[in-house]
Design a protein around this nucleic acid. Structure first.
Lengths: 116, 116
DNA sequence: TGTATTTATGCGTTTATGCGTATGAAAGCA
DNA sequence: TGCTTTCATACGCATAAACGCATAAATACA
C-alpha cells in the first residue's frame, strides 16, 4: 500500500510537468529544439513569435527541466533535455489522430442517417 | 514545406490534448481507469474527490477522447481509450524523475561548496 | 406517477495563465 | 566608460480554469 499523500504529490509533480506541454508555442519550441539547439533570437525568428513571449515560454520549460541552456557570450542556446519527450509527444499525437478520425467517422454516420 | 497555419493548428490541437494531462486529479483518474473501468461513484470513492469535481474532470477527458463511456442503467462506466496514453505518461514520468534527481544532485554540490 | 439513485451542469468566486509593452540585466566591443 | 546586442522580467489587463454548492437531468423501480 502506497502513502495516499505521496501519490497525490507525485501526481501533482507529473501534472506540473505535463502543463509545460499544454501550450502550442511551447510544443513548437520543443520540436524546433529537437531538430537542433537554438538561441532565443533564432526561436523568435523561426516561430514568428515576439521575444518576450518566447522567453517566458522557455522559462516554463526550463523550470521543469524539459530544456537546458548553454551560454555563449551574449547568446543563450537552448537544448532539448531528453528525446523521450518527443517520443511521448509522438505517442500522444498518434492517439489524438485516431480519436479525431473516429469522431469524424461518427460525424459521417450521423450525416448518413440524417439523410436517410 | 508544410503550411505554416496547418502546423500551428496541429500544435493547438496537441496542446489541447496535453492540457487534459495537466491536472493531478485527471492523471489519477487515467491511472485508475487503466487499472480497470469504473463509474463516477467508484471514482469518487477511490480518489476521495467530490462527485461534481470528478464529473467535470471526466468531461475534460471525454471531450478530448482520452476516455469513453458505457451507460448501464443509471450508472456510467468510464474506460481508458488507449493504453498508449499510459505509455506516454510513463515516458514523461521517467524523464521527470531523472531531471529531479539531477536537480537534487546540483543541490548537493551547492551545499558541499558552501561548506567548503 | 412518485421516489430514489446516479451523473451532469449552472452559478459565483477565487486563482492562474497568456500576452503586449516597457524596461532591466548581462556580455562583448569600440 | 559608453554603446550595442541579446535575453529576462515586471506590470497591467483580459481571459480561462478550478472549485464548492445547489440543482437539474436521466434512469430504474415501487
Amino acid at each position: 500500500m502506497v502513502n495516499q499523500t505521496l501519490v497525490q504529490e507525485i501526481s501533482q509533480l507529473e501534472a506540473d510537468f505535463c502543463f509545460a506541454l499544454s501550450d502550442p508555442t511551447r510544443l513548437l519550441i520543443l520540436y524546433a529544439l529537437a531538430d537542433e539547439p537554438r538561441n532565443v533570437t533564432e526561436l523568435t525568428n523561426d516561430l514568428s513569435v515576439i521575444q518576450p513571449t518566447i522567453s517566458r515560454h522557455l522559462k516554463v520549460l526550463r523550470e521543469r527541466g524539459l530544456v537546458y541552456t548553454v551560454r555563449q557570450g551574449t547568446t543563450v542556446t537552448y537544448h532539448l533535455s531528453d528525446n523521450r519527450l518527443i517520443q511521448a509527444l509522438d505517442l500522444l499525437r498518434a492517439v489524438m489522430r485516431e480519436r479525431l478520425a473516429y469522431k469524424a467517422s461518427l460525424m459521417e454516420e450521423t450525416k448518413a442517417s440524417t439523410n436517410a
